[in-house]
């Protein structure tokens, strides 16, 4: 939500190494960063602070565990955005979230996934709710370097009744 920009950023972690000279803090061990409805998690996170106090966070995944983030959206209904990638960069000045390598962003309406996009690089602007998907982990689109895919569910606005769960009678002799 837009209200997140006025919220403080808290980080929970197991270990911390801090380099006060370069203002770089490295958190390791199920790091959890929260700021209002924004919630980011990863095995390791490196936070650097600029002179005005804005933080630039880089979350990196570990073996079998990707960095993830989750944030509530403005607008009616219980709408959330969830993302995951091998590496996530978050700049709380521009409020831009960048997901690198095997990136995925899902938009949810309550429990139901409204849409899901997969690509090598996804950048997401939470203020304008605008996102861009590139096909190389470097962040630019190289021709012929493969395609990203987005699957959109039928728009919920049409309030399509979810298909009744089909009751499979147990087949005889199963």
């Amino acid at each position: 939500e837009k209200a997140d920009s006025s919220k403080p950023t808290e980080i929970a972690f197991d270990q911390l190494e801090s380099d006060d000279v370069k203002q770089i803090k490295t958190f390791t061990g199920n790091v959890v960063l929260t700021r209002g409805t924004l919630l980011m998690k990863s095995p390791k996170a490196v936070v650097t602070e600029d002179p005005e106090g804005y933080q630039f966070v880089v979350l990196t995944s570990g073996p079998g565990v990707q960095a993830t983030f989750r944030q509530k959206l403005d607008g009616a209904g219980d709408q959330w955005v969830e993302g995951q990638a091998d590496r996530i960069e978050y700049d709380n000045k521009t409020e831009l979230v960048k997901l690198y390598a095997k990136a995925r962003i899902k938009k949810l309406e309550g429990p139901k996934t409204a849409s899901q996009v997969d690509g090598e690089f996804i950048s997401y602007d939470s203020r304008k709710e605008f996102f861009a998907v590139k096909n190389t982990a470097s962040g630019e689109t190289k021709p012929g370097a493969g395609r990203s895919t987005m699957v959109i569910q039928p728009s919920s606005k049409l309030a399509v009744p979810p298909a009744p769960p089909s009751t499979n009678q147990p087949a005889p002799g199963k």
Partner: peptide
């Protein structure tokens, strides 16, 4: 929807 470069608002 598929493309080498996708952008916009879902």
């Amino acid at each position: 929807v598929m493309a080498e470069d996708i952008s916009g608002r879902p």
